[in-house]
Nucleic acid binder design. Structure first.
Lengths: 273, 273
DNA sequence: TTGCTCCTCACGTCACGTGAGGTGGC
DNA sequence: TTGCTCCTCACGTCACGTGAGGTGGC
C-alpha cells in the first residue's frame, strides 16, 4: 500500500504521470479515499507500471502499448514491434537526410559556395497555353530579351483582338532541339477558352510535372538564369531528385513602372526513390 | 497580387498555414480588405515564403528560423545550423539505440529467449538501515530462506523492544566476500532514529546509487533470483550501462496470508557513456 | 441560382509540466 | 503552528488540420 508519491518514486515517474495514466485507464489505483480523494497503490501494480515505462521507452505511444498490457502474447508484441521498427527505420533515414543537408549547407557557407536556400519541390498542374515560338534565325543570347518582348506583345495583341481573356502569368518554356540548344516559347494560360490559331499563335497543353522551384528577381536578364538552373539541378540531386528536360520560367511580376521583374524558375524532376 | 489561395499554391503550402504565419508575424499579406477581410499577397513575398519552407525543412522551428529571415548573414545562419546539426546527431543516436533495442526484442521473441520487459533505470537515494548479518557457517542456498526469515524476526523483535519505528520495506543486500561468494544482510529503513547496536543488530547507510530494476513475484525462493540478476546484467549492457557489485532486493510485499511476496531487484550500474 | 473561395472562431493533436488555490496529517 | 503531501482544475506545448457557420464574387 503506497501513497501516490511513494509509488511514483518506486516506478521512476511523477505523481502527475500516474494521474494521467489513471485518466487514460492504463493504471487505476487500488483504492481512492472517498473523503479526501487520496489514492492508494499496491506493490503488485509495480510490474504493470514498469511495463508501461519500458514499452514507452521502445517508442510506443500510450495507445499502442495499451493492448500489450493485458495480452502479453508474443504475437501481439511482435506485431507492434515490427511496426515500430519500420517507423524507426524510416525516421532514421529522414533524419539522416536532413543532417546531410544541414552539413552540406554548412560546408557551402564556409566555402562561399552559393547555393540558393529558398528552393522547394512542388507539383505543377497541367496548363493550357496560347504560345508563340521564338526561333527566328538570328536570335541569340544577346537579343533574346528583345525577341521575347516582341513575342509577348504580339501574343497579347492577337488575344486581345480575339477577345480572349488571359489572366494568368506569362510562361517561358523551351523545347529541346536535340543539338544542345533549345527553342524558346512564350505562352500564357488561357484556361479552356478557344484561341485563334494561325502561323504565329498556337496552342498546347503542358503536362503536369513535379518541379524544383526557386525565385529570381529581375537583374541580369537571360545571362543570369543559366547558372541558377545549374544550382537547381545540383540542389535536386542533393535531395534525391533527378532533373530531366529543360525548365520553365513563370513571370510572376513583369518589370516596368519601377518594379523589378520576378521569375519563378521551375526545373522538372523525377523522384529517384 | 495574389489571393491567399493562389499564393498558397505558389508556395506549396495551405491557406491555413499562411494565416498561421501571419499570426506569428512571420509573413504579413501586403493588404487586407477592410470590408471583407480578404488578404492580398505580392509575388515579391514568394522568396520569403520559400525561405521559411526551406529552413523548416532543415529542421528549424518557426521561432528558430524567424531571425534568419531578416538577417541573412552567414554568421547567424551558421550558428543555427551548427546547433541543429548537434541536435540531429543526438537524435539520430537516440533513435538508433531505440531501433537496436526493438530489434533485439524481436530476436528474443523469435528465439524464445526470455529477457524481462519491465526493466527500468532509476536513482536510489541513500538509506539508513538497521541490519543483521546472515553469515553463520552452514548457511547455503538450501537453507538461506529460513536463515533470512529468522534474521528478519530477530531484527523486528529488537527494534520493537527498543521502540524504534521502522515503517519502510525490508532490504536484502550482499557484501562481496572477494572469493566469489557474498555475505547476505537483511536490513530495514530506520530514517534518522537511533538504534540499539549490539553483536546482532548493526547500522549503516547505504549510498545513493543508479540501478537497473525489475520486479519478481514470489515463487521459487532464492534459486529463482540468480538468473534474473543475470538478465538484469544483460539488459544493462544492452542499454549502455555497466553493472558493478552485488544487487539489493527490496521486499515490497512480504508473503503470507495468501499473498505472494513481491521483490524489487536492483542491480547497481554506472552509465558507460 | 450554384459553386468556389474566402472569412473567423475553436477544438484536437501527445504526454505530460507547471502553476493556482486549497486541504489533510504529523 | 509549520512543512509536506495530496487534491482538482486549467493553461501551455508545436504547427498546423479540420470542421462549423457564414459571406463575397462570378
Amino acid at each position: 500500500m503506497f501513497s501516490i508519491g511513494d509509488f511514483a518514486r518506486l516506478g521512476g515517474v511523477s505523481a502527475r504521470t500516474l494521474r494521467y495514466y489513471e485518466g487514460l485507464g492504463l493504471l487505476d489505483p487500488i483504492a481512492v479515499d472517498p473523503a479526501t480523494g487520496y489514492r492508494s497503490y499496491s506493490a503488485h501494480q509495480l510490474p504493470r507500471l514498469n511495463r508501461i515505462v519500458a514499452l514507452k521507452d521502445l517508442g510506443l505511444s500510450l495507445e499502442q502499448l495499451r493492448p500489450l498490457l493485458d495480452d502479453l502474447s508474443a504475437e501481439q508484441l511482435r506485431g507492434m514491434l515490427q511496426l515500430k521498427r519500420a517507423e524507426l527505420q524510416e525516421q532514421l533515414a529522414d533524419d539522416q537526410a536532413r543532417l546531410t543537408r544541414v552539413e552540406q549547407r554548412l560546408r557551402h557557407i564556409e566555402g562561399e559556395d552559393t547555393v540558393p536556400i529558398d528552393v522547394l519541390v512542388k507539383k505543377v498542374p497541367p496548363v493550357r497555353l496560347a504560345f508563340v515560338r521564338c526561333d527566328e534565325p538570328g536570335i541569340g543570347f544577346d537579343n533574346m530579351q528583345s525577341a521575347l518582348g516582341a513575342a509577348v506583345l504580339a501574343l497579347r495583341e492577337r488575344l486581345d483582338a480575339a477577345g480572349t481573356r488571359a489572366s494568368g502569368p506569362m510562361v517561358l518554356f523551351y523545347e529541346d532541339r536535340g543539338d544542345d540548344s533549345v527553342i524558346p516559347h512564350v505562352g500564357i494560360d488561357i484556361g479552356d477558352q478557344a484561341v485563334p490559331v494561325d502561323d504565329l499563335v498556337q496552342e498546347c497543353t503542358l503536362p503536369a510535372i513535379d518541379v524544383v522551384s526557386t525565385t529570381h528577381s529581375g537583374g541580369g536578364g537571360h545571362d543570369a538564369i543559366g547558372p541558377i538552373y545549374g544550382q537547381l539541378a545540383r540542389w535536386a540531386e542533393d535531395h534525391g531528385y533527378q532533373p530531366y528536360g529543360p525548365g520553365r520560367d513563370v513571370v510572376l511580376e513583369a518589370s516596368g513602372g519601377g518594379t523589378e521583374a520576378l521569375l519563378e524558375l521551375q526545373l522538372p524532376v523525377t523522384q529517384s526513390g
